[in-house]
Simulated scan of single mutants.
Amino acid sequence: MGELKTQNEKAVVRLMIIALVPFYLSAVVLHHENIMELANSRAWQAFLGLTAISVGPIVCLHVILRLVANNVGPRWKERLAHLRWHHPLPGSRADALIRKDSRIDVSTLPPQVTALLNDSMSPHERNAYWYSTIFRKVRDTSAVSNTHRTYLLYREAAAGTFVLFWVTVSFDLIGRGAYGLPLMTLSAYVVSAVYLLLLIGAANQAGNRMVTGAIANFTPGQPQGDTE
């Protein structure tokens, strides 16, 4: 999984940069005169000159966004991606997901998979069984690996965007209350919230497809995949 997360790093940052667009557009709409005055000032031109010969602002932003995404715990990322407080991992719901997937014929499933349909299994036990018995044996196949990578991409981006959203809200409230200086318009809030919900929805769907995709690609007797 570490390798997949590394492959996703640049894409995650790009998705989080998109989340900042409503903030910047709001700043332009609300404070364009002040921004133009600042842009024409000698101090700002000097700052631009310094950034041109040292660490650029885009590089700094890239590092900050990576830190934001990496400082959210895996458990919280799962809860956000699936909007579930208890047992958020999609493998916990493998029994329900199997029955909903048109690719899977329940009547032809091998015993290793039908065990997931046992109602006596707790969600935790079901996820652990799915991971150890099914997923680990097929995770290196291209179909499952690609879905897993997509899931991690949207999960990380959703978590980072969630943090950025509330940081933006905090700065906006402080600006309005302490200085009478709003930073976000109502339409920007709506766009930001919709974008976050789209990322959450994409993560949720990819996670569910990862579970059923592993089952659809599972064949009894397969060698166990690399566990490192």
Rank of each mutant, 00 (worst) to 15 (best):
L20R: 05
V13D: 00
Y189P: 11
S26G: 14
N127F: 10
L181R: 13
W76I: 08
D140N: 10
F218H: 08
E156P: 02
T150I: 10
A143D: 10
K10L: 04
H32K: 14
V163C: 03
R209L: 12
R209Y: 10
I134C: 11
T51E: 14
H124E: 15
G91M: 09
T108N: 13
G160C: 03
R79A: 10
K10M: 03
P90C: 04
L67M: 15
L20K: 06
H82G: 02
V13P: 01
I58S: 04
R99G: 02
V169E: 11
D226A: 05
P111A: 12
R75G: 00
I98K: 05
H148T: 12
N71V: 02
Q222C: 06
Y129E: 03
V191N: 00
D140Y: 13
D95P: 05
F135I: 09
S187G: 01
T185C: 06
V21F: 03
A203Q: 03
E78A: 15
L97H: 09
Q224S: 13
T227R: 10
A39T: 10
A96G: 11
V21Q: 03
I98D: 06
L89K: 12
S102A: 13
H31Q: 14
K77Q: 11
T185G: 11
I18M: 00
L109P: 09
H82C: 04
W85S: 09
D101G: 05
T185L: 06
N146F: 09
S92T: 12
H87L: 08
V21P: 00
V59G: 01
V191G: 00
R103K: 13
S92A: 15
T147A: 04
D172Q: 08
E78K: 15
R126E: 07
N146C: 11
N217V: 06
C60E: 05
G201Q: 03
F171S: 11
T6G: 00
R66V: 02
S122P: 09
T212C: 09
F135M: 10
I18Y: 00
L4R: 12
G2K: 01
Y195S: 02
L164P: 05
R176P: 06
L186P: 03
P90H: 06
K10R: 07
Y151L: 01
T185S: 10
P223L: 05
F47W: 07
A216H: 15
R149G: 02
P223S: 10
E125L: 14
T114E: 08
L173I: 10
N118G: 07
R136C: 13
H86F: 14
H148A: 10
A94Y: 08
L197N: 13
D95H: 05
E37K: 15
N217I: 06
V13Q: 01
A159E: 03
A157E: 01
R66T: 03
R155A: 04
V190A: 14
E156H: 07
A27S: 15
R99S: 02
V59H: 11
M1D: 07
A115K: 15
L109I: 08
R126Q: 11
V190K: 11
A128N: 14
G175T: 07
V12E: 08
N217T: 10
A206N: 02
T212G: 09
L30S: 07
I17S: 01
R93M: 13
W166V: 09
P57T: 12
H87Q: 11
I215L: 04
A188N: 07
V190W: 14
A11C: 01
L164K: 01
N118C: 06
V29S: 12
P123Y: 06
L198W: 08
M210P: 05
I215A: 01
V12D: 08
